[in-house]
Computed example of a mutant assay.
Amino acid sequence: LPKHEFEVAMTCEGCSGAVTRILTKLPDVKFEIDLPKKLVWIESDRDVESLTDTLKKCGKEVKYNGTK
């Protein structure tokens, strides 16, 4: 599966918790969050647009950095 890197404007545990809750609802998705670096890595075969839209549901600014 491709591993996509996103920059999400998370500032605290609450922010990363919101991202975790949103991503946990998606089937077949593995993810890691690096709060200090404001990065989220998502392993999924979903398209980038749907992953970006999903991440935006937490109300934070989201930037796609590409696959790693």
Rank of each mutant, 00 (worst) to 15 (best):
T54L: 13
Y64V: 06
P27K: 15
V8H: 07
L26S: 08
I42G: 00
V62C: 03
F31H: 10
G14A: 15
L39E: 05
C15F: 02
T24L: 13
D45N: 14
K3M: 14
G17H: 10
K63C: 04
R21H: 13
D45W: 03
P36C: 05
E61D: 12
K3V: 14
D34N: 15
G66T: 00
E5M: 09
L1C: 14
T11L: 10
V8C: 09
V40M: 08
T52H: 12
V19Q: 02
T24I: 05
K37P: 01
M10R: 00
D28I: 07
P36W: 07
K60C: 08
K56Q: 08
T67K: 10
P2F: 02
A9E: 12
W41A: 11
D34K: 03
K60G: 02
T67L: 13
D53E: 15
D34T: 07
W41Q: 13
K25V: 06
S50Q: 15
K57D: 02
W41N: 11
A9N: 11
R21K: 15
V8G: 06
I33N: 01
T11W: 10
C15R: 02
R46L: 14
I42R: 01
K63R: 14
E43N: 07
T24K: 15
H4G: 08
V48N: 00
R21I: 04
K63Y: 06
G66S: 05
I33Q: 00
L26C: 06
S50H: 11
E61P: 01
L51G: 02
E7L: 13
E49H: 09
E43G: 05
C58F: 05
C58E: 13
C15H: 01
K60R: 13
V8L: 00
K56F: 07
K60N: 09
A18I: 00
D53Y: 12
C15Y: 12
K68H: 00
L1G: 15
P27N: 12
S44W: 08
K38A: 10
Y64S: 09
P36G: 01
L39I: 00
V29W: 03
K37Q: 10
S44K: 08
N65Q: 12
K63W: 02
R46V: 00
E61M: 06
E32I: 08
L51W: 03
S44G: 00
G14I: 09
L23R: 03
P27S: 14
L51Y: 04
T54M: 05
Y64A: 06
S44L: 00
L35A: 07
V48Q: 03
K25M: 14
R21Y: 10
V48T: 13
R46D: 07
L1Q: 12
P2M: 09
I42T: 05
V48H: 03
R21T: 14
D45Y: 09
T54N: 03
E5Q: 12
I33W: 05
I42S: 05
K60P: 04
R21L: 07
E7C: 09
C15E: 06
F31W: 07
K37A: 11
E32K: 11
K57Y: 04
T52W: 12
G14Q: 10
G66W: 00
C12N: 04
C58P: 06
V40A: 10
S50K: 13
T52F: 15
M10S: 10
L23E: 09
E5H: 07
C58M: 12
K68R: 11
G59W: 07
K68V: 11
C58A: 15
